[in-house]
Every structure is written in C-alpha cells, then in structure tokens.
Design a protein around this nucleic acid. Structure first.
Length: 889
RNA sequence: GGACGUGUAGCUCAGCUGGUUAGAGCGUUCGCUUCACACGCGAGAGGCCGGGGGUUCGAGUCCCUCCACGUCCA
C-alpha cells in the first residue's frame, strides 16, 4: 500500500464517464480511512455520537448472489446516511465460515471426507483441487482426519473470503474492514465458548438425552429452525392388529410400516366413539407379536385414516409427544446411520417375531419397508394394497432424505420452547425492538410462540466451534458424562478433541482415571448469535469502562433479510437476554427477497449478468445499488436489469449535469469546501427563478431526511431523484442562457450561484445511493470525500433575498413544456423559433411566468410576442412555429 | 387449516393520516444532433386501482367478504 495522497480537486474531464470509477475510488477510500470508525468520538460525544450496526456475516462457502447485494446495499445506505448526518458509524463485517455448507464445499472442492477415527497426516495432499459445483460421490472421497479436514476448510474459506471482500469493496460497501472477523477465528471461537460456559454455569445451557431430529446422510442432529417441510410421496398401508381379549382385528393406517417393530401403543382420540370400548385394553402387533396398550390422546386425528394410529419410537414428532405425555417405553430400532438394529431387540420375545425381524436387521428404512410389506402380505395382515399419498415430511434444509428421530445426548440452550415464562419474556424483548417494516415483528412472535423445544446447538460434525467440555473417565474406563471438566475463560479457545483436559496429559485420553473430550461442535448460529459480542470485543472489554463493548452495546441497528428472523435475529435476542438482560439493538431493518421474473425466489444465478460481479461490470456499482435502493425494506423485489440501467443513466446524468453547473469557472466568493454554499454565494442569488428552485430543493432535503430517519431509503431516493430530473430538464434549460451571460452579469451570477448551491446539496443527497459518481464530481471542486461531508439541511437553500414559491419554477416549466409540445407537434427541432404564442393561466401563475419571462424566451426561443390570458389551468396555444434552416457543419 | 404480506398502465413500482381530471420509470409510437449529456433531448398513446358488498357529501385509500399469488407455521 502506498502513502495516501489527499483527495484533490481535479480538472473536469472533457467527457466524464462512470466506467472505472470503482477502481479509482475504492482504493482511495481505503487508504484515507474514509469509513474507519474513529473511537475518539466516544471521548468527545459519548454513545450519542455513535451509530452501531450489526451486519450478517455471509456464509463464506456459498456464493454471494443478488439477494446479498440487495439487502447489504440497504444496510450500507443507512450507514452512509448516518455517517453524513454526523454519527461515527460502527459498521463491521464478518464471514460465517464454519458449519455444514463449508464442509460440503470442501468435500467437493478437494474430494475428501472427514473421518474422526483417522490420525492426522501432516503431509496430506488433497486428491484434487477446484471441483466447483459438482458433488463428489461418497465412494470417491478420500477419508481424512478431523484435523486435516479442518485445515482444508481453513484454506478454502480464506480464499473464498478474498473474492467476497473484493466484490463488497467494488459495490461500495462502507465497512470498516479493520473490524472484520471470521466466525471460526480464535477470537470468535473464544467468544462463543466463553458465552457457552456462562450459559452452562447459569443453567441456560444443558446436555440431555432426548429424541431429536437426525439427518442420516450427514449424521448429525438438526435444530427446529433448520427444518423444512417438503412434500414427500408415500403409501398408506392398512394393517391389522389383533385384540388380546377377543378374536377381532383393529385396523390402523400407516405410511411407515417398517417401524412396526418399534410400536409402543395404539392411540385414538378420547372422543372417538369407535374406540371407546378399546381404551385400556391391549392388542398384539402383527408379525412381531408384541402386546401393546390402546390409549387415548387428543392429538389423534379422528378424520384421518382409521382414526387410530400406531405410536412408534419414533416415526414423527407426534410420536414424541405421545411418548412423553403418556410415558411410553422407548423401543428405538432406527440407528444413526438410518439402518435398523442389527439384532432383534429385547422387547420382541415371540419366536415368530424374532424370525420376522431377522429379515429386517441392518437394512435401511427404505428396504426394510418393502420387506415388512411383503411379510404382512404373507401373513394376511395387510388389507388391500398400499394407496399412494403425498405427505409432508421434515427435511434438514440441506438434506435429501427425510429426517429420522433418534435418541441421543445433545446440548441445548433454553429459548422458551419449554418454558412459558421465558417464552413470554422473549416475545416482550421483541416488542422493545423497532422492526422496519413493523409487520415483521409478527414473524418473530409467530416463531417464538410456536417453539416446541429448546435450541439444540450441538452438531456431530468437524468444522465448527468445539463444545468446550471434557469428561472424567472412571476407573472402569467409562466416561462419566456428569463429571464435566471445564476450561478457564482465559484458556479459550480450546479444542477438547485435540487438546488434553486442563490438569491432564494427552496420554491420559480415554484411559481409566483419565479424560475424554466432547467431540461435538456448536451449530453455526450458536456463534453468529454473538456477532455484537464478537464485533465489539465483549471478551476483551467486559468490565472495562473504556472499552467499545461497555460503551456501545446495545447496538443501534440489526440489518438482515427476512428469512433469518427465526434463526439469527431470534438467537441473538436470546443470548443478549440471558447475558445482558437487554435487547441487543434498538432497530431491526428487514429486507425482502429477490424474485426472478417467474415470481419465484431467485435461485442460483444463471447468466453472467446475474452474478453480482457481472452486474457491477455491466451497469456499474452505482447502477446496481440504484436497483437495490429503489425497493423498500421488507418488500420482495424483482430482479430487474432495467432498473440497473436506469441507475447507470442517473449516475451518468449526475456527471454531465455537474460538469455544466461547474463550467462557469470559480465563483467570486470561492468554494465553500463543504456545507452547502458560502454566504457570498447565497447573497448572489437574487433572481426569482433561482430562488424558487432553491425553495423546492429545501423541501426535498426535508423530505429525504425524514424518509431516511424513518428507515425508508426508497422514498428518500424517489424524492431526490424526481427533483433532480426536473432540475435537469427544466431548470437547467431555463437558466442556461442567463448563466452564459445572456441577461447581464448580475443575473448570470445569480444563476451560477444557485447552480452551485443546488449541486452541492444534490450531490450529498445522492451520495448514499451513487457513491462513485457523486465522489467523482465532488472531487472536481472539493477536497475530502463527499461521504464525510455533512448531510444537507433545508436552511442551506435559504438566500438573503428571501424565498420564492416553488410554483414559479413549476409554472415556467409548464409553459416551457407547452412550447416544446407545439414544436414537437409541428415536427420541428427544439431550435425552431416561436414567432407568437399565447400562454393562458390563472393570474398568480401568469405573474410567476412573467417574472421568468426572459428565461422562458431564451429556453423556448420565443422571438415574437407572448400574449397572456386567463384560464383555470395552464395552457399554451396558438403558437407560431418557425423552423430554422439546418446549417451544415 | 393458521399468521403475515401482495394484487394500481404491456413490465417494475409510487400513491402519507379518505378530498380537485390516478403518478413515475422502463417498454412502445412519433419527432429532434439543442453550445452538460445520442450512455442524449422533446412529445404522444396506454389504467372498470383483483371481484362483490358496505361506511361516507366523497373510497385506489376505511370496514366486511370472496378470488389469486407469495412466504412462514401446522
């Protein structure tokens, strides 16, 4: 990096262009620290001087897509506005690089698979590199040790993050890059582990054996928030159970006959007349001959199937409810690999049952199902043939097979899913946050209100933050899961799978009297729910009154997309509620989705112009930002190349119009250097037309500011842009002749001064949206960055001569439009002269137009008389258009 | 089935607490090299404001209901 050169007013190019501005200005902003957070503000103005933003760390192993560009731009708009409005903006960015998406990408990229049973190989070379996109079959993956696998994850994520950073910089994201973090770096891991230990100490985190959702492909537990209900084809099988007190069948219907050996009861609704006589009695299961009770529970659906269901441990979440509430025994047959137990379980005692099970042992649920159906058909217990059905099954959002429910020991953090008081408290926390738009709060409350269990944070994977726990091993060589060995906070981060427990030696691992490490890692959200703590250095700053953490937390704004309210937003609230008894931030800005032209959620990008890189190349960062900025928070938006083109045009227009406004040389009073026009400039504005324009501009400043303050960037843009276009089309055309000196020196000075004042205000109003074009223009006549200039205030447009109604300019614009229309209808060019014309309007409008008559005559090339007349609405008529001979050049 | 959101010109969207003939941009049609801009400028056409009820002097805007679409949860 070279020594920073100060931004300097440069010559105005002959033909200004927006192409290449990203390469020109992004490095300058970095070198000059334009977006660097200056913590001395805390000494000068305290917390009031800071605006702190909590930004989602994008998944490093995915790819940044248009949806990211969309919502991250929204956040950047707020950051830039707040920065110009006088706040020192704390705006960090991180990368979320742990978790399953990274593992999957590493598997495919290098063709490897983690295997915890293998030893570390320091000389390992991956079989290949760069297998983008294509997945590698499990059989072709080379197994590697946990440590080797983690190293590959580390290499690839860093590589990915560099390309991401480059894109964010080109897009003009105004992060302070010195604050960036990775959720897998030592600081993040230590923070996550320390908070976990605090939660553990206070009973907010705990381990428990419980039935939970399990992905057999990834072989890990899955949390409620990661579920996805999908349509899944299946068959209803009508199966006969047999009463033990009578020779009579009881028919049930099930989509999962292979779970018959795991059946623990039959259950019907307590009000169901058909089964009143059966409650309390027992039946015998077909094939396996296990005696089972018939019980009543309100969750049984009377109108579904036979109205009576078999309860297995476990086929679905309803089974879990029944099992828990009716205190049924646990008879699991599905193992973590998705295969059935290898031997007949103890509860099957009948000889025929044991024999039947032999055909199922060790098979996948899919092949076991077919086998059970065959057996039922033989025994005559299958009634009719299976009938096809579509049902909803739970999937892990990244998985391909339906989830099984497996009993295992897992770590949880309480989240109100099993505790009504905590649930109410967390809903109340949500009400302390101002959601933008406000209806997004409903999503938060719906989710929290619908929780049915605590937050499962442990995953049986490789690349992530380790659960910082060891267990003492007893004299019998068995680990004692209640004898936790915990690290001190100053020892964090730790990896119990690789490091010995405190006070032990590595040689004591797994031996009697020694220790074992917990092999689980935390779910990604258990770390990213601490982004405020990570970014503000809670760990290093807790208890230090002068630290960023103690001075800034809670933050001002959480910005994110709507899909992760239930995960990221909620989990951050949970952590903050436990640790600090407060909300983590006061505002939440929620962006919508990007939809492709078919109104579907935008999938993976298809063409080059639909990748963020391609978009920026094609339309410029300003053009892409304009598209994102024109959509309101919380509203899904269409992927719209047309809007990017419009934004590109707007940026080009800014360059050209500015070139014109600045083409009259240095003003006599000199350049103000920042905040909107010196006193001398304002004194020079004496002409009504100019004063009218500035009055309208002051109104625009007020509206744009109010819109930004209400987190409505789209409205701020709309108001500013609308003014800017009429400013170019009408005002610039009207005053052009006068500014060139056509009406004398004083009149020219008024126009030039008004142009200069308006330009300074407009550039700053547009700066958050078009950071590159506005910075380029600003550099033509200012030192320093427009992005550190002060946000305009309406008073900047006040001139000593007094304000003039915006109606004057509007009336002149209308009159000019009428003249243009006459020329257009005469099919002449705009250079045609008007020999005579009548302008009819109400008296007030007429007097306004008369005040600017000289400008109107020049802009419309009116050489003859203008007759004024009375009319309710403005009308230009009886124009005599005189075409001009085309002069060959 | 429940919650939330959306439905306004061919397309993408504005229309704040109900108030004059419903707006913008894109696209389209016609015209123009006009000394900031042809990566431009000017003009025109184009709308039973999803359907049906109601409240009101007055409804795109408020209420009810139905329909369609989207997302999430069952």
């Amino acid at each position: 990096m070279t020594i920073a050169e100060p931004t300097r007013a440069t010559a105005i190019p002959e033909r200004p262009s927006i192409d290449g501005l990203e390469d020109k200005w992004a490095p300058v902003w970095e070198e000059q620290g334009v977006f660097a957070f200056d913590r001395s503000i805390l000494d000068e103005r305290g917390r009031e001087g800071v605006y702190a933003i909590d930004t989602p760390p994008p998944t490093a192993s995915g790819s940044l897509h248009v949806g990211h560009v969309f919502s991250y731009t929204h956040t950047d708009l707020v950051a830039r506005y707040k920065r110009m409005a006088g706040y020192e903006v704390f705006f960090p960015i991180g990368w979320d690089d742990n978790g399953l998406p990274t593992e999957r990408r590493v598997q495919n990229y290098y063709g490897v698979r983690g295997d915890a049973s293998l030893p570390y190989d320091p000389d390992f070379t991956p079989p290949r590199e760069g297998g983008e996109g294509k997945s590698v079959k499990a059989a072709d993956q080379v197994p590697v040790s946990r440590q080797n696998f983690i190293e590959l994850c580390d290499i690839l994520t860093v590589k990915d993050e560099e390309t991401f950073e480059d894109l964010w910089r080109r897009l003009g994201m105004s992060y302070d890059w010195s604050l960036s973090y990775r959720t897998i770096d030592d600081h993040s891991r230590a923070t996550a582990q320390q908070m976990f230990l605090r939660n553990l100490a206070k009973g907010e985190a705990y381990a428990a054996d419980a039935p939970g959702l399990w992905d057999v492909t990834f072989q890990t537990a899955v949390a409620q928030a990661e579920l996805e209900a999908r349509d899944y084809p299946g068959h209803y099988h009508r199966v006969a159970f047999h009463r033990t007190d009578a020779d009579a069948p009881v028919f049930i219907e099930t989509t999962r006959p292979e779970l018959l050996p795991a059946c623990v009861a039959l259950i019907a609704h307590p009000d169901d007349e058909r089964y009143q006589g059966l409650f309390g009695k027992t039946v015998r299961s077909p094939l396996f001959q296990v005696e089972l009770p018939v019980l009543a529970h309100p969750d049984a659906e009377m109108d579904k199937g036979a109205g009576i269901a078999m309860c297995c441990t476990f086929g679905d979440l309803t089974d879990v409810t029944w099992w828990r509430e009716l205190r049924l025994p646990t008879r699991s047959i599905v193992t973590r690999t998705g295969r059935l137990l290898g031997e007949a379980p103890a509860w099957i005692t009948h000889e025929a049952g044991i024999a039947a099970y032999e055909g199922l042992a060790g098979r996948t649920t899919f092949s076991a199902r077919a086998a059970v159906v065959d057996l039922l058909r033989e025994s005559g217990d299958l009634v009719g043939e299976p009938t096809p059905t579509q049902r909803k099954a739970n999937f892990y959002e990244n998985g391909e097979k339906p989830l099984e429910i497996v009993t295992s020991r897992q770590w949880y953090i309480r989240n109100g899913g099993r505790d009504a008081d905590l649930n109410a408290a967390l809903i109340e926390r949500g009400r302390e946050i101002a959601f933008h738009p406000s209806f997004m709060r409903a999503r938060y409350e719906n989710w929290v209100g619908g929780l049915n269990g605590d937050w499962l944070i442990s995953r049986q994977r490789f690349f992530g933050v380790a659960i910082p726990v060891w267990y003492a091993v007893g004299a019998d060589g068995e680990p004692d899961r209640d004898a936790l060995i915990l690290p001190r906070e100053d020892q964090l981060p730790v990896d119990p799978a690789a490091q010995p427990a405190p006070g032990y030696d590595e040689s004591q691992r797994g031996v009697p009297g020694g220790f074992v490490g917990d092999t689980d890692i935390m779910d990604t959200w258990a770390t990213s729910s601490l982004t405020p703590q990570i970014a503000l250095d809670w760990r290093g700053g807790e208890g230090d009154a002068g630290s960023l953490w103690s001075q800034i937390f809670p933050m001002d704004l959480r910005a994110q997309a709507q899909d992760i309210i239930r995960t990221w937003l909620f989990s951050t609230v949970v952590r903050s509620h436990f640790a600090e008894n407060t909300v983590p931030w006061h505002h939440a800005a929620i962006s919508g989705w990007i939809l492709d032209p078919d109104r579907k959620k935008m999938g993976k990008s298809k063409g080059n112009a639909e990748t963020p890189e391609g978009m920026v190349k094609e339309y410029g960062a300003d053009g892409v930002r304009y598209w994102a900025a024109s959509a309101k928070l919380g509203t899904d938006a269409a992927f719209d190349i047309g809007q990017m083109k419009v934004g590109r045009r707007l940026a080009i227009k800014v360059l050209n119009a500015s070139k014109f406004a600045l083409s009259f040389g240095e003003e006599p009073a000199g350049v103000s250097g920042g905040a909107g026009g010196s006193a001398a400039l304002r004194r020079a504005v004496t002409v009504d037309v100019d004063r009218s324009m500035l009055t309208a501009l002051a109104d625009v400043v007020g509206k744009a500011t109010a819109a930004f303050d209400a987190y409505d960037h789209a409205r701020a843009l709309e108001v500013t842009e609308a003014f800017f276009w009429t400013f170019c089309d009408d005002y610039l055309e009207l005053v052009k002749d006068r500014a060139y000196g056509g009406q004398g020196e004083a009149a020219a000075q008024s126009a030039r001064a008004a142009l200069r004042i308006a330009l300074e205000v407009l550039l700053r109003l547009l700066a958050p949206f078009l950071p590159y074009a506005t910075e380029e223009v600003w550099s033509w006549f200012h030192d320093g960055s427009v992005h550190r200039a002060s946000w305009p205030v309406p008073a900047e447009a006040d001139v000593p001569a007094g304000s003039v109604s915006p109606a004057v300019l509007a009336g002149l614009g209308g009159a000019l439009a009428g003249i243009r229309k006459a020329k257009s209808e005469a099919k002449t060019g705009m250079r045609a002269e008007i020999a005579r014309v009548t302008i009819a309007a109400d008296p007030a409008a007429v007097s306004g137009i008369r005040a600017g008559e000289a400008d109107l005559r020049a802009a419309g090339r009116v050489t003859g008389d203008i007759d004024f007349a009375d009319a309710a609405t403005l009308e230009v008529r009886d124009a005599v258009v005189v075409p001009v001979e085309r002069t060959p050049r």
